[in-house]
Design a protein around this nucleic acid. Structure first.
Lengths: 235, 235
DNA sequence: CGCAACCTTGAAGCGGGTCAATATTCGTGG
DNA sequence: CCACGAATATTGACCCGCTTCAAGGTTGCG
């Protein structure tokens, strides 16, 4: 990833509005921004768009960055010994990803884009430096950690419990909860399988069945609309 | 839980050795202990033994304590809508439990003892106060958060993936990794079922089968020995 | 166009669920 | 100490949901 431009410190930047979800921005910007030191630190934050399918970082790598999601959707993919892999959680706008880097640890999973994403890359040193003098940022980091834990645990209780049809319904509802107007990404059948713990064929059969029952409708190329009420009846 | 005695500040306490794993003790004790203020804060830390089956805290409660495990083993039980429940992770000596209390949030799960446990109860205010002046403690808290995340995710990748026999083998090996000399607790079949995501009957059938194949041996009442090499062959 | 990646669908088999009966362990009180 | 009942564990028989293996079908891209 190459250095682009210092969005965060540019008050006239058009994308500024989305910064309201950012742990760094949402808490620090409006409290202690006016120091030269802070402005300097923020220059190290980079921003980039990723296309669907591209990898933000790779399992076992250790590059010293934490990432925040401004737009789009990521999957955290864990490779298993047998060559197969499972998706252990997803991340949405406002989430921080790769927090283990704050502890100097290698990434536990690969982060791969599921839906075109706008992502900020923050060197861990920046966060650590700001945290020293800012308890509020510290709390925001902990909140992001807890959010990852909540998401991983909901994968166990919601997406790995009950019949496959129920699990798929819960997955679609979860995606809808993070989308505008029930417009959700049309996931790869392989990804659905890796999330709800079935084979690709079963995922395909279920999705085809849901479409026939009009629980989901194709919108354009990579998104669809879903019938939330109908899906809730399956749970 | 009633106040017992200020173990942490009593240098002659026989149980002191186990404090080496504690986030508070392991980092703060040897750095800034000698202040009256810190000693005072530590007086609010309580310590108690819990018998197997007893509940340390309850899902949705909000009592403002974080707990650390000094000995024994806990299960984090999440109640589902249908009345059933799943176990989303386990905790062992050195772990911190109920970290969401640091954010003022209600507990996500009930914490129930699986094996007689020795547990410290720490008011969130104590941790917050100490964190303000101690970046090292702050790091320790983050490490505990990451450990919870690692454990939850290993439940997805190890204990909710593959055939039931494989998952049970991985569960027993995980317990063995946290025990002395492959002596692991003889879990309730219902707990095994709630961990690896099968019915109680299937858990019972598999355990009975493992015993016949001498992969596990009854020791005394509530513990057993397991053949780690044999179990690894099932993965 | 033609290949590659992805999706859909079918048929057969089995792993684990379900329902039910029996055995075992454990706590409690006589 | 034994007896009794409740909780837990074991086992059987049947069946269904999902996997497996295999064969097209569809989409998209160089």
């Amino acid at each position: 990833m190459h250095k682009t431009k210092p969005y965060c410190t540019d008050e006239s930047w058009h994308g500024r509005a989305d910064c309201r979800h950012c742990a760094i921005r949402g808490t620090v910007l409006f409290s202690v921004l006016n120091t030269a030191e802070l402005d300097r630190a923020l220059l190290d934050i980079d921003n980039q768009c990723f296309e669907s399918g591209s990898e933000v970082f790779s399992q076992d790598a250790n590059d010293g960055y934490v990432y925040t999601v401004r737009a789009g959707c990521l999957k955290m993919v864990h490779k298993l010994e047998g060559g197969a892999s499972r998706i252990v959680r997803m991340h949405y706008p406002g989430d921080a990803v790769g927090l283990e880097a704050l502890l100097g640890l290698p990434y536990r999973h690969s982060a791969v884009v599921m839906q075109k994403a706008d992502i900020c890359r923050i060197p861990v040193g920046v966060i650590q430096a700001l945290e020293l003098n800012n308890a509020h940022l510290h709390e925001q980091v902990m909140r992001r950690w807890q959010a990852s834990l909540d998401e991983a645990e909901s994968f166990i209780t919601d997406l790995n419990t009950g019949h496959a049809e129920t699990r798929l319904a819960r997955l679609l509802l979860k995606l809808a909860a993070h989308s505008e107007r029930t417009c959700i990404p049309d996931l790869l059948r392989e990804d659905i399988a890796a999330i709800i713990g079935v084979t690709t064929e079963t995922a395909s059969r279920l999705m085809a069945d849901f479409r026939r029952r009009k629980l989901i409708k194709d919108k354009d190329g990579r998104t669809m609309k879903c019938d939330q009420e109908g899906l809730k009846n399956l749970i």
